[in-house]
Computed example of a mutant assay.
Amino acid sequence: MTTGDLPLMLLAGALVGLGLSMLLWRVRPAQVDLSSALDRLSPERSLAEEDRTQRAGTDADAKDTLGRWAMRTLPLDALGAVPTKELALLRIPVHRFFGEKVLFAVVGLVIPFALMILFSAVGLAVPVFFAIMGALLLGSLMFFLPDYNVRDDAAKARKEFGRALASYIDLVALERNAGSGPRQAMEIAAGIGDAWVFRRIGEELARSRWSGQPPWDALRKLSDDLGLPELADLADIMRLSGEEGAQVYTTLRARSQSMRTAELNSALAEANATGERLSIPMSTLGLIFMAILVTPALLRIMGS
């Protein structure tokens, strides 16, 4: 055995181990999360997902087909937790999310080999071992790239939801002050705006009306599913208005004002952080300019 054969032997051993682990995974007992399984089989969840699937036309999307195949075939449950709340907020089906992950991984696996072929065409020989290792590394990194994208988009969506929710609470307060009932005030306020936040709340209120569920319970469930504590506060306030007949106009206006104050403080903190980051290049330019001025004098002193 020579030194050049060692990388190929290591690669062969890694591939054999990967094959054995895949075979053992196929025969191992399935570990089913009972809570998530029952949640997926619930009537409300099934109808909601079916409705979203019909509106988005998911059957015609290649990523959806790839994602369903991956969920049936690959051990995706062992590769990290699924950001279910973020996906629910963005209305991205789980199978489409996994299809995007697999597609990104395939692209990451192909790029190093495409670069190797390109380098070979211009006369630069790249060892196959480095291409394989680069493919495995890049494929692994790109497999987890959709997780970052989903969490980043969900964080932006939550900020937008908070800003729109403050306006929605003001509208509900005005409707309650005008004499509308709790459900009527919430439904009228949801129908005024055309933003996706108002449409999402309106859909939940309409679903609660047809199912006979109190509207505040529907908003509480939506808050738990999407990870929106501000919506849970609104649900609690409206519960007091609906069940105990409490006057909640002042409470609603105070809640919307506190949300706007918190949003303003967050925006100011973000602006201050951006300003501090912008001062770093200016400070660096100042140091470089001072170095240019001082360097000739130092060189003359050292030369003398």
Rank of each mutant, 00 (worst) to 15 (best):
G108Y: 02
G139Y: 06
L136A: 03
G108M: 04
V110I: 15
F98P: 08
A114L: 15
P93M: 12
V94E: 15
S140N: 07
A155D: 03
L109Y: 14
V107G: 00
Y148W: 14
V110W: 11
V150L: 14
L118V: 07
V128M: 05
G99C: 07
P83A: 12
L138S: 07
F143D: 04
M133D: 03
F129A: 06
P127F: 03
F104P: 07
P112T: 00
S140T: 06
L109S: 05
F113G: 00
V128I: 07
F129W: 09
L145N: 11
R96A: 14
V110N: 03
L87P: 01
V106R: 08
F130L: 13
L141Q: 07
V94M: 11
A121W: 05
V106E: 09
L115Q: 00
G123N: 07
L115M: 14
F113D: 02
S120P: 03
L103C: 12
G134M: 04
L87R: 03
V107I: 15
S140C: 13
I117T: 07
V102H: 04
I111N: 00
L138C: 11
V122G: 05
G134W: 03
K101C: 15
V102G: 00
A121E: 15
M133Q: 04
V107L: 15
F98K: 02
L103H: 14
F104K: 01
L103S: 15
D147N: 13
L141V: 08
A155P: 02
D147L: 13
L141T: 02
V122D: 05
A114V: 14
P93D: 12
V128S: 02
I132Y: 00
K85H: 12
L118R: 04
S140K: 03
V110A: 15
L90S: 09
Y148T: 12
V102W: 01
V102P: 02
F144C: 07
F97D: 02
V128F: 01
D147W: 12
I132F: 01
V150S: 08
S120M: 12
K85C: 10
R91F: 09
G99R: 03
A135M: 01
P127W: 02
M142G: 07
G99M: 08
S140Q: 06
V106S: 11
A154D: 07
V126H: 05
D152T: 09
L138Y: 08
F129H: 00
A105Q: 11
E86Q: 15
M142H: 10
H95K: 09
Y148L: 14
L138V: 11
M142A: 08
A114P: 00
A121T: 01
S140L: 08
D152N: 10
E86Y: 10
L115W: 04
A135S: 15
L124W: 11
F129M: 02
V128G: 05
A105Y: 02
F119R: 06
L87D: 01
A114E: 10
V102N: 03
E86W: 10
V122Q: 08
